[in-house]
């Protein structure tokens, strides 16, 4: 493992550790009764101990790597092109989920599918617009009819029923 991966790994363990400690303290503050902590306390203890074990092992690996492989490129090196594409896809998914409640599920889905297809290399306008529109429209409408809760929509069944 190279240094960058090891640091990211430590960050991930740190995330688990911090969240577990916070959750334990939040649960304790909510109620210190045995009933409340019956499962949480032993489970959190296991996670905390194992996180320390992984941190120790990763630091040990880092120390060994530094001594034995200085300046050497690692086979696990992250491919930058792929990394960019995944981060961009995550950002698009995040944007889609965050705006769908405001601009409507149908429009948000159309924009998301168009931009994701574009990100993945689709450049044919007919496919970008046509497929995205058809999919977004049909799926939104299907779910709007099938789901018993109201769905925020810009076009939606109400407008279609009015047009018809």
């Amino acid at each position: 493992m190279n240094k960058r991966i090891q640091f990211t790994e430590l960050s991930l363990v740190g995330f688990f550790l911090t969240l577990t400690c916070w959750y334990l303290s939040d649960s304790y503050q909510a109620s210190a009764s045995t009933e409340n902590l019956l499962l949480i306390l032993p489970a959190a203890t296991v996670v905390i101990l194992l996180c320390f074990w992984v941190v120790g092992r990763t630091l040990f690996d880092m120390y060994n790597t530094q001594n034995s492989k200085s300046g050497q490129h690692d086979a696990d090196e992250v491919i930058p092109e792929k990394q960019v594409s995944v981060v961009a896809a995550m950002a698009l998914l995040g944007g889609y989920v965050l705006v769908m409640d405001w601009i409507g599920f149908d429009v948000a889905t159309f924009l998301f599918i168009t931009s994701m297809m574009f990100l993945q290399g689709e450049r044919r306008i007919a496919w970008l617009g046509g497929y995205s529109f058809t999919f977004a429209f049909l799926v939104s409408l299907f779910f709007e009819y099938m789901i018993p809760y109201p769905m925020p929509m810009l076009i939606g069944k109400e407008m279609i029923e009015r047009l018809l």
């Binding site: 896809a89 998914l93 889609y96 994701m116 297809m117 799926v139 939104s140 809760y149």
Partner: peptide, 26 residues
């Protein structure tokens, strides 16, 4: 895949909304 990935992601988002009835799912 360039069509499948966004479609399945959108389907999962719709499905999760259908399961919870709120934005908690997405």
């Amino acid at each position: 895949v360039r069509m499948l990935v966004p479609s399945v992601m959108a389907l999962a988002i719709f499905g999760s909304y259908g399961l919870t009835g709120s934005m908690a799912g997405p």
